[in-house]
């Protein structure tokens, strides 16, 4: 099965259990929104999927196309097709976007094979156009001195160039004004397709007006308390997270 499969996952930071028995499946070709209040464990889940060294999986499994992700280093996961759009992307002083993405693509090639420079730049410029980014952007250092909107757009540009099989978008809408939000949403929508599964993590319903999800899951206190179609997001917007928590039974998954 071509899917990202999270099964009964428990995550701890120190003594504190943040994620408590979370189960979620994101098949390729679908967009799943994961909503929840602050502190519900959404971002922790995102980091663990990518393999952040500060978090410990105490129980459960994560499989990507059947392969055990937890056995792999962060860079191995990335090269096998997992992408995380960071909520707070790091700055890399002195390293241009062009050089960074080139190194990232080069790392996916077998040893001894060199990335073809002309093809690379053609692809890079095409994706930038898609995101309404000026070409001069490529010679700026990654995230250095970027506005919030520029950082988020750069994340989506990287996703577009690296062409992952699964993308986790962590609060990609936070800190964006409505114009920037629309641009980013347009970028993500243009990447949707049968080969890409997306897990869209967000606090607000707003983003889901622009990126229409196939499914919506509500996460509270480290677990998924409700799952449903896109209408669930609207209902949640109306009734609030307390409603989601109170009425929770075992999550109805499809």
């Amino acid at each position: 099965m071509k899917e990202l499969n999270i099964e009964k996952l428990h995550i701890a930071v120190g003594d504190q259990e943040i994620v408590r028995g979370l189960t979620l499946r994101v098949p390729r070709g679908e967009v799943h929104a994961l909503m929840g209040p602050n502190g519900s464990g959404k971002s922790t889940l995102a980091k663990v999927l990518a393999g952040h060294p500060d978090y410990h999986v105490t129980a459960g499994k994560i499989l990507m196309d059947g392969e055990d992700l937890l056995e792999l280093d962060p860079d191995e996961r990335a090269r096998r097709g997992l992408f995380l759009a960071f909520q707070y992307p790091s700055e890399i002083p002195g390293v241009t976007i062009a050089n960074f993405l080139r190194a990232a693509l080069q790392s996916r090639l077998p040893e001894g094979e060199e990335l073809e420079a002309t093809d690379y730049y053609a692809k890079l410029y095409e994706k930038m156009e898609l995101l309404g980014m000026d070409r001069s952007f490529t010679s700026r250092a990654v995230n250095e001195g970027f506005s919030g909107g520029e950082k988020k757009r750069t994340e989506i540009l990287q996703m577009a160039v690296l062409e992952p099989q699964y993308a986790v978008l962590d609060e990609t809408d936070s800190g964006l004004d409505i114009d920037a939000l629309k641009t980013v949403a347009h970028g993500v929508n243009s990447l949707r397709g049968p080969d890409l599964g997306i897990l869209l993590i967000t606090h607000y319903q707003r983003l889901l007006n622009y990126i229409i999800p196939d499914y919506v899951h509500v996460m509270v206190a480290g677990r998924i308390v409700r799952s449903g179609r896109k209408e669930l997001a609207l209902e949640l917007e109306e009734r609030g997270y307390d409603w989601a928590r109170d009425g929770a039974t075992e999550p109805a998954y499809r």
């Binding site: 962060p74 860079d75 390293v95 990232a104």
Partner: peptide
């Protein structure tokens, strides 16, 4: 920073090396 770069596919050593080159 290293985790960010690793998430894009670079090994830890490649990430370090690129950071230093950037510096």
């Amino acid at each position: 920073q290293i985790f960010y770069m690793q998430q894009r596919g670079l090994t830890e050593a490649q990430a370090m090396s690129l950071s230093v080159n950037g510096f």
